[in-house]
């Protein structure tokens, strides 16, 4: 998959990288068991500090999206176990999003529809703007 990093974005580069890899896994562009580039190679190709890539890989590894194999390096994880803690975090994030939606006058139905579109978009590799 192609990773694109906006060097001027207010979002930190390690977060952008982490998010794109998660989107890649969800959208099927990165398959379970697939080798990811080494930290140094990816840093060199993106022209960013390798500590930044290391930080993203460490986050992804902690969250269970990738596994760090001593011989193969970073590998996309197989089945990612469902965790209660994750659901609690997700609910918290969605609550904040829902609150923002309410402030912007978005109804519950509309919010649910947007959530559905976001879910399908992540699964199919992109959010459509229709």
């Amino acid at each position: 998959m192609i990773i694109e990093i906006n060097t001027q974005s207010p979002t930190p580069i390690y977060t952008q990288l982490r998010d794109q890899i998660v989107l890649g896994i969800a959208g099927g562009r990165l398959l379970p068991g697939e080798d990811l580039p080494s930290v140094r190679r990816l840093a060199a190709d993106l022209g960013i500090n390798f500590h930044t890539v290391n930080k993203s890989y460490a986050m992804l590894s902690d969250e269970g999206y990738i596994q760090m194999d001593r011989r193969r390096g970073a590998v996309v994880a197989g089945g990612i176990a469902r965790r209660e803690a994750f659901e609690a975090d997700l609910l918290e994030e969605l609550t904040l999003s829902a609150a923002e939606a309410i402030c912007h006058g978005i109804s519950e139905m509309e919010f649910a529809a947007l959530c559905g579109r976001a879910y399908q978009g992540a699964k199919n590799g992109g959010v459509s703007n229709d």
Binding site: M1, I2, I3, E34, L36, P37, S38, R40, R41, D45
Partner: peptide
């Protein structure tokens, strides 16, 4: 554009 790119498979095989 202030963007940089990498392709995971290309970076991996070139590495």
């Amino acid at each position: 554009p202030s963007v940089v790119f990498a392709e995971t498979s290309s970076s991996h095989t070139r590495g």
